[in-house]
């Protein structure tokens, strides 16, 4: 009962806010709708019992990505995009020509067929599985997996993040006056 309520409300929030991102003309409003959509996805994770992933979703996307997006939009002009509906060459903006429409249609059809293929197996009666778990919480489980099975990926991503950090420091460093 409660899980169904959580699932339906999260799903409605996710989809409606995702539509909002596309429909709204103002780019700041788009960012705020994106916030709602990402919160909805966190709710979907919570429905699945993945509490750690749900919180990480909020932490990373709401606390980090959306704020950085708002910053970027504000520093690069923000609301001016609404009134200036032109493309880069100064021509009136349009959705594309016949070739872009054809390619878009093709991609859409392929995507739809792939999704149908994926979903087809799931529409039959689902066996109810009770998940047996030897760990007391998902946090413990993720911790164990990260330092046992996936330790290489874990360490490599930490090296990648260190590289990004050093790169950002080098870019932001003031140039020497020669």
């Amino acid at each position: 009962m409660f899980l169904q309520f959580l699932f339906i409300s999260s799903a409605v929030l996710t989809v409606s806010c995702a539509l909002g991102v596309l429909m709204v003309k103002n780019i700041m409003h788009s960012c705020v709708f994106l916030l709602g959509s990402l919160m909805g996805i966190a709710g979907l994770y919570a429905t699945l019992g993945a509490d750690f992933v749900a919180i990480t979703q909020i932490m990373v996307y709401v606390g980090g990505v959306v704020i950085l997006m708002l910053f970027a939009v504000m520093l690069t002009g923000g609301n001016d995009f609404v009134s200036r509906a032109q493309n880069l060459l100064g021509l009136p903006a349009s959705m594309g020509n016949k070739w872009t429409y054809a390619i878009g249609l093709l991609v859409g059809v392929v995507f739809l067929l792939t999704n149908i293929q994926l979903i087809r197996g799931l529409t039959k009666a689902l066996p109810v599985k009770t998940i047996t778990n030897e760990f007391p919480s998902t946090v413990t489980q993720i911790g164990h997996l990260l330092v046992k099975d996936h330790v290489l990926a874990f360490e490599m991503s930490s090296v990648l993040l260190l590289g990004a950090l050093v790169g950002a420091a080098i870019i932001a460093r003031p140039r020497k006056q020669n």
Partner: peptide, 21 residues
């Protein structure tokens, strides 16, 4: 919650968003 303090840190970032907006 068994992710209690993590939840608290994550959800309080909404305050920063509110200040910014």
């Amino acid at each position: 919650l068994n992710v209690g303090i993590f939840y608290l840190v994550a959800i309080s970032s909404l305050v920063g968003l509110g200040v910014f907006l």
